[in-house]
Amino acid sequence: MTTIHVNGRAYQVAVDADTPLLWVLRDTLGLTGTKYGCGIAQCGACTVMIDGTATRSCQVPVESVGSADIRTIDAIEEDPVGRRVVDAWVAAQVPQCGYCQSGQVMAATALLKQTPKPTDTDIADAMTNLCRCGTYNRIAAAIRQAAG
């Protein structure tokens, strides 16, 4: 049994130690907001926050997580910054197919928590997740709006 802390709750999970955090979230805990896109940390669809840092959970073995504070999209609106980001995403009508947007919102939330007033360069450096619908410009606009 491994204990992980997700969205403020402790969960005991019986999974192989090398299981990526992504699959523990999705298949063991049923937190399917976090998406599988590539499995090699290229696309960012699986982005969660681990101790406040945007992290691609497909490449994080559950055994390496320890007692870290994991935050996922499923509880994003409980976080004041996350809530602001979501509201900006809605206002800018960012999502199209929406599949990458969980990861985009998590990456944006982590950025704004660390850098409340990001420059365009900060946004470009932090927002490297792929979007096949090409919503990149609206993502940047929403982040600027959420930053106020």
Binding site: T32, D74, V90, Q93, V94, G98, Y99, Q101
Partner: peptide, 18 residues
């Protein structure tokens, strides 16, 4: 506004994979 935008911005939209 699109009907599915908030669900898609909060991980609540359900796809086949979910």
């Amino acid at each position: 506004a699109r009907l599915d935008v908030r669900a898609k911005s909060t991980g609540k939209a359900v796809y086949a994979i979910d």
